[in-house]
Write a protein that binds this DNA or RNA. Structure first.
Length: 267
DNA sequence: CGATTTTGACCCTAC
DNA sequence: AGTAGGGTCAAAATC
């Protein structure tokens, strides 16, 4: 059991799914080879969006909405790429617009102002090389003190998560928790990092749900966005991801990548 | 009673 | 080849 390590198992189970990754770093994926494939197959299998049907997803919009100015980062940024992490055009972090990693993966993140974004990012870049960057579908970092309130909502993204581990990462003093989607066969996982105060400083999603959001998620029963009819069309079909979707998504992310992230991401 | 969380150990990968 | 660090497993505890 333990011998398998874990990361390999899922890959074999999900390998049957079409590898699909929303990360704008698709190009990277292509060139990155097996490293990502590990996760790509794992999460990529269902890699669609966090919520095939529910756009709001992981970075609970409500949390953002609830914290309009909270982060101090312009809602504009959100308007551009708020609920669509897979949107290649995701705006670079307000403060860190020049972070390749950030934009590159189309994951948008929020960092608490309490800690220097740059340093944080650096840490990520350093401690989390390619396998994560390429595989991570969405990266969310909460920002400002309001994140505390958002914590719940963010975790309650409409899916049921089960914590399967916790670690104290070297780069930061923040403990990192590992969650798995409780839905059978759903390879989706997420890492949640909290600061000393218990506030979420970062959330990283891996893989995509191979199922639609549970109607009555235990934890997210109160999520109003649960039924937010956001246009998620391209990904909506995630339930039956085919090449079309794949290409669409890939091209999407690709174009976006090429457009804004390429130059910077290159380095 | 079942599901989830906690926690230490183990495994894998990168350096 | 060894070490460090991250990620996952799994038994026990808790809810």
């Amino acid at each position: 059991m333990a011998s398998s390590g874990g990361s390999l198992n899922p890959s074999t189970t999900t390998s049957q799914y079409p590898s699909f990754c929303f990360s704008t770093s698709f190009t990277d994926l292509m060139s990155s080879s097996h490293e990502d494939s590990n996760w790509a197959s794992l999460g990529g299998g269902n890699n669609g969006i966090e919520s095939p049907k529910q756009p709001p997803t992981p970075f609970s919009p409500s949390s953002f909405l609830s914290t309009p100015t909270a982060a101090g980062f312009s809602s504009n940024q959100f308007l551009d790429s708020p609920f669509f992490p897979f949107n290649s055009n995701i705006v670079p972090s307000p403060t860190t617009g020049n972070f390749p990693e950030e934009t590159k993966y189309s994951d948008f993140s929020f960092l608490p102002q309490t800690r220097p974004l740059s340093s944080k990012m650096e840490e990520q870049v350093k401690s989390q090389p390619q396998d994560w960057s390429t595989s991570e579908i969405q990266k969310t970092k909460s920002e400002s003190t309001h994140q505390y309130l958002s914590d719940q909502t963010r975790l309650e993204d409409g899916y049921n998560w089960r914590k399967y581990g916790q670690k104290q990462v070297k780069g930061s003093e923040n403990p990192r928790s590992y969650y798995k989607c409780t839905y059978p066969n759903c390879p989706t996982k997420k890492k949640v990092e909290r600061n000393l105060e218990g506030h979420i400083t970062e959330i990283v999603y891996k893989g995509n749900h191979s199922h639609s959001k549970p109607q009555n998620a235990k934890k997210s029963s109160s999520n109003s966005y649960n039924d937010v009819p956001i246009d998620n069309n391209h990904f909506d079909s995630s339930a039956s991801f085919g090449e079309d979707d794949f290409e669409q998504a890939s091209s999407l992310s690709k174009s976006g990548d090429d457009h804004e992230n390429e130059p910077e991401a290159k380095r």
